[in-house]
Amino acid sequence: MLKLNYTDVGLYMERTTTNPELLIAQRVLLAMRLGQTLHVEPGCASFLLPADISELKVLGMALDREYGSAATLIAVDEEFVEVGLSGSWIAEDKDAHEGMFLAVMSDRTEFLIYKLWQMSEAHISSLA
């Protein structure tokens, strides 16, 4: 499973083998114990990757073949493509910009997305 954490400083992605239902149940239990509200809903999330990454073609084919419209790869401009995923959004409220997004895909596709995201983060860090 891919876990995308959207924070005030950006996106952090990780791969985990935890069952998504178990992770959601644990997060709900934690919120209840802390007296916090929690919003969980099916949804979509997206992030950008540089358009010049050679493996994007492989990712595009894998997403088309395995997920159809549940996962997309769309050119934004000459420099970036947007990866869109379907999954579950978990946040403090419905309109929150910070939260956790969970997407379950095949191991191969999850690994490829994670690898490309890591490459893009390294590329951005080297520019700073």
Rank of each mutant, 00 (worst) to 15 (best):
V81I: 09
L38Y: 11
L73H: 04
N5R: 12
G35A: 12
E66L: 05
P20W: 12
L102K: 13
S125I: 04
A51N: 00
A45E: 11
P20H: 13
M13Q: 06
P20S: 13
M105R: 06
K94F: 12
L11P: 03
V81T: 05
L102H: 15
I124N: 07
S46A: 10
L73Y: 03
S106T: 15
T17M: 08
K115L: 08
S125N: 09
T37W: 06
E110I: 01
T17A: 10
S46W: 13
A122F: 14
W117Q: 08
G43D: 03
E110G: 15
M32Y: 08
S86W: 15
M1I: 05
F47D: 04
R27T: 15
A75T: 08
K115Q: 07
E41F: 06
H123T: 07
L127R: 10
M32V: 05
M1E: 04
L59I: 01
Y6K: 11
L49W: 01
L56S: 01
L127I: 10
I53M: 05
Y12G: 03
Q118R: 14
S120K: 03
F47P: 03
L48K: 03
S125F: 11
L127W: 08
H97N: 14
A31S: 14
R108I: 04
G43L: 08
A70M: 11
E78V: 02
L23H: 11
A103Q: 06
E21N: 15
V28L: 12
P50N: 05
A71P: 02
M32E: 14
G68Q: 12
I24V: 15
D77M: 02
Q36T: 06
K94V: 15
S126H: 04
L127D: 05
R65H: 11
E92D: 09
A62T: 00
L73K: 05
T72F: 00
D107Y: 03
P50A: 04
F47T: 06
E14M: 11
T18E: 15
G68C: 04
L4K: 02
F80H: 10
E55R: 10
A31R: 13
D8S: 14
L49K: 03
G99R: 07
I90Y: 10
Y67T: 00
E110P: 00
R15G: 03
E98T: 14
N19T: 04
H39L: 06
S69M: 06
A75L: 04
H39F: 13
M32G: 11
L34P: 00
S86K: 13
Q26I: 10
Q26F: 14
L23C: 04
Y114F: 15
G60P: 03
L29F: 09
P20I: 07
L59S: 00
F111E: 10
A31E: 10
F101C: 11
A96L: 12
T37R: 12
P42R: 08
E79R: 07
G35F: 15
M1C: 05
V83N: 02
L38H: 11
H39V: 09
A122H: 11
I90A: 06
R65I: 06
L59R: 01
L22H: 13
A70V: 00
W117P: 01
A51L: 01
T37F: 09
L116C: 00
R108V: 06
A122I: 15
G68L: 14
V9F: 03
V104H: 08
V40R: 10
M13E: 04
M105I: 02
L112C: 01
F101W: 12
E14G: 03
V58Y: 05
A96G: 09
F111K: 08
E55C: 00
L85C: 01
